[in-house]
Simulated scan of single mutants.
Amino acid sequence: MADKQTRTYEELLAEGAAVPTEGWDFSWFEGRATEARPSWGYATALAGRLGEADAALDIQTGGGEVLDFALTHAARSPALTAATEGWPPNVTKATARLRPHRVTVVASAEDAPLPFADETFGLVVSRHPVRAHWDEIARVLRPGGTYFAQHVGPGSAYEVVEFFLGPQPGEQREARHPDRERRAAEAAGLETVDVRAERLRMEFHDIAAVVHFLRKVIWMVPGFTVEAYRPRLRALHERIEAEGAFVAHSTRHLFELRKHC
């Protein structure tokens, strides 16, 4: 394969379309795209929480990468740790990755009720859930238990979204606003301990990175395929070639919520 700097547009498209999308390992983007990380360091903070928990649940674990890191670095593992995931390739990947930690990985659709009894867990966690089902989170938490999670915020990477889809309605941009999610969580019986939010710079250095990103984060441009968006991909490729990296901004917020005793 030619050096990255001399690859043709078609070669870059083909490369971005061929990279496997299972799990939440973003190491392929190294040298092609960057995203600043939130200051709170979620995975490391999670390790500390797991070290103090006796029963923990990770919702929508992906390929288990974040939970694996946190358990590896925790002072001790909970006596019971479970995880849910809805996409079959990720269920397989997470099961294998988390087996050394004795984590029970349960195949469960994102919009299904959590397959656990009431008040099973003292700690429920999630990194970038598609949607938080607050009633279910509150149901499986013990009184005094904690929900500790990093969510995608409002208008995240919307520079990318709107390049392909055009201007989006304000209501859609605000759907993940932390204030809105906090109110829904409190209505379900959770009290707010801490909420933090940050806006973070992203850079895409070639069109292969954009293609892989949109294939991996499928809700950004629903139904995305290279063929369906070839004209816009060509336009963005030419823009990157002429102007340098395409800049976008992700938004993230950290939740620490507690179930009423």
Rank of each mutant, 00 (worst) to 15 (best):
A188M: 01
P169H: 05
R215T: 05
Q168D: 07
A228W: 07
E238L: 13
E171Q: 15
A208L: 00
V161R: 13
M220V: 12
L200W: 04
R215E: 00
L236W: 05
Q168W: 08
A175C: 06
A187W: 12
G189W: 00
D194F: 08
P178I: 04
D179I: 12
P231D: 06
L190T: 01
A197H: 15
G223I: 11
L233K: 01
V217D: 00
M220K: 10
F224G: 00
R196P: 06
F164R: 08
F164D: 03
A228V: 05
G166C: 06
L236G: 04
A187D: 15
L200Y: 02
Q168S: 10
Y229G: 02
E241T: 09
D194H: 13
V226F: 03
V226S: 07
G166L: 09
V210G: 01
P169V: 11
I207P: 00
A187G: 12
V161G: 03
E191L: 12
R234E: 13
D206W: 01
R173K: 15
R215Y: 01
L200R: 07
A188G: 02
R232A: 06
I207F: 06
M202N: 14
V161H: 04
K216D: 01
R234C: 08
K216H: 12
F213R: 00
K216E: 01
A175M: 13
K216M: 04
R239E: 14
P167G: 13
F204M: 00
R176H: 11
V211D: 00
K216V: 02
P222Q: 08
V226R: 08
E162A: 12
M202C: 11
G170T: 10
E227S: 13
E241S: 07
W219D: 14
G189C: 09
A185W: 02
R230D: 08
E186F: 07
G166K: 11
Q172K: 13
G189F: 02
F163L: 06
R183Y: 10
R182W: 09
R215Q: 04
E191N: 12
Y229N: 07
R230S: 06
Y158V: 06
V221I: 14
P231C: 08
I218E: 14
K216G: 00
D206G: 02
R180P: 05
